[in-house]
Design a binder for these strands. Structure first.
Lengths: 334, 334
DNA sequence: TTGTATGCGTTATCAT
DNA sequence: ATGATAACGCATACAA
């Protein structure tokens, strides 16, 4: 278990000075070295199996080729595809991801950011969900994925949720539904809030208004509670637009408990196609969000920000797609 | 955008030398400094918002408090809970995880390991699945999670798959099934192979033998292909034990296509409870594997190995639990 | 084009 | 108990 070769070992094998070896090995400075020397150094590096010590490099250059990725909880099925996209995007530039889960705890988030900054993270991708400010002071590049802040000075990559909501409401309207309710997401989460507003707008465009109940969280349990309130307040609904799939599944549960059939009695739609919702009973109509691409684009945007920190704070919006399944049908007389 | 405070800033604020500040801030050397000095230094660090520069620390100590975690694909629902457990386990010791996906490509795996080693990774947790050797030379601590190698000199954390298979076969036998088939996982994956052997053993213990078809991958598509072969070869089966849930879902598909009902015609069991299989049609009987705990224990085991590299190569086996649902029933006359 | 010198921030060793 | 000093490996400004 002898020590790993350093650049001095490479240099002495190539019979040059360490500085020259460094220049020869770095693509950016390679043109300042004669081709023959480059050749010798590269050869020496290969035979020794040299790999640069990234700690030393980080210390010297103040960069690490590592990005911090902070999400609420990897077990939420939204995030694995996003994170995978992020990693693939970062890998395109030789970057790696340092992953942290906050469990939606703002203190934990601040703590993670601090720890990661101590680890020389070159930038952050935040997928945490609150609409409030971000725990960063603008001295380090940040990209938001699947969320925006209200003050729009942070680059973000989001899906066009409102367009998806419009499409769902249009679908239900075309099927003949007029009494449509909404199970909204938390008010302080940008995606939930955007969908709520889009729902109101879409309904208004058909000269309708619909009852709304807000969920405290994007969970089945919150969905159950809100569904109960919604059905108690407005028993004659024929369709329910849920702010995401988990809430829709909670809605399924309450409907089952109450002996209401889907879609015969009430049509239900979700949002954010989750794995296996096509195999639910009934299979769930939902909106597919290009999660992997959201991650991929956010990584590219971050790399762009790192390379060019003072550029404009671009935002990227990706299209969504309605996936119609068994959970919606024409309303029946009730 | 002024520079982050260094330990010298902390030291000068606390009116001590940098070396003393270092000792005061490091829990391991804190007892070599007078309590009053520790107090002053800690206070100074807090007021400055000091966070140690981990690149400098790594360079000096040759450790990074970072572990490499290598998995096939985060989008496989097995892995998010495992990775989350790993991260929580690592966090207990101030470690973070550097995550890499191999897509089951051995070259990619080697490449990732090399890159991560260059980043001063203190150890590795491998969740990749092949039974062959690992791409590491024994100079760096490694723990396998949810897999074993055939040469048992690498510490591992696995679930007791064979016990789960036994329990499933016993359940089916008690319900009255005698013609039970197995959709086995890939031969070169330890979990699949172990379950295959456990199936044979369990069947033999009831003086039965059952037809087996191997899947090339743990996917729905592989499950569909193998199910078709199994049913073609042995049409009179009353129960099918699938090597995991995805394969079982593929089995559902083929049964649907062929007009076979589950469980009326054939009972089906999965393995590795995946999210939402309780909401499938019919809800799937499966074996729950403590994925989060698998990750947590593997992190602890790795930390143990890092602290004590020459100790024995412990392996941890965690219990599994059968979750009985609608997909199994007494066999009907056919 | 190449060599020399220096410092990034931390901690281990030695001296006080 | 604390201070002084050096070294980890690399990249760069400057000199040659």
């Amino acid at each position: 278990m002898d020590r790993a070769p350093t650049i001095r070992d490479v240099a002495s094998l190539a019979k040059v000075h360490a500085a020259t070896a460094s220049r020869a090995l770095n693509p950016r400075t390679r043109d300042k070295v004669s081709p023959r020397t480059v050749q010798r150094v590269v050869e020496a590096a290969r035979t020794l199996g040299y790999a640069p010590n990234s700690a030393a490099r980080s210390l010297r250059t103040r960069t690490s080729s590592v990005a911090g990725v902070i999400i609420p909880d990897l077990r939420n099925p939204m995030f694995p595809p996003i994170v995978r996209g992020i990693e693939d995007g970062l890998a395109e530039a030789g970057y790696m991801a340092l992953l942290g889960n906050t469990d939606d705890d703002a203190d934990r988030e601040r703590e993670l950011v601090a720890t990661m900054r101590g680890r020389q993270t070159d930038g952050f991708i935040l997928a945490t969900s609150h609409r409030g400010g971000i725990p960063l002071d603008g001295t380090v590049p940040v990209v938001l994925v699947n969320r925006r802040t209200d003050v729009g000075d942070t680059p973000s990559v989001t899906a066009d949720g409102p367009a998806g909501v419009y499409a769902l409401v249009r679908l239900l309207h075309e099927l003949g539904h007029r009494r449509i309710g909404h199970l909204a997401g938390p008010r302080d989460v940008s995606t939930g809030w955007d969908r709520y507003r889009a729902f109101q707008d879409a309904m208004a465009s058909y000269d309708l208004t619909g009852p709304v109940e807000f969920c405290d969280f994007f969970t089945e349990e919150s969905g159950r509670l809100a569904t109960a309130r919604l059905l108690d307040a407005t028993p004659d609904l024929t369709a329910i637009v849920a702010s995401n799939d988990l809430i829709a599944l909670g809605c399924y549960d309450v409907m089952n408990q109450r002996g209401l059939r889907c879609p015969e009695d009430i049509s239900v739609t979700g949002f954010n196609e989750m794995p296996f919702v096509d195999k639910q009973r009934p299979s769930l109509t939902t909106v597919r969000i290009p999660l992997y691409d959201l991650g991929l684009e956010s990584a590219r945007l971050l790399l762009d920000r790192i390379a060019n920190p003072s550029g404009p704070a671009k935002s990227v919006v990706l299209p969504t797609q309605v996936i119609q399944r068994e959970s919606v049908a024409r309303p029946s007389r009730r």
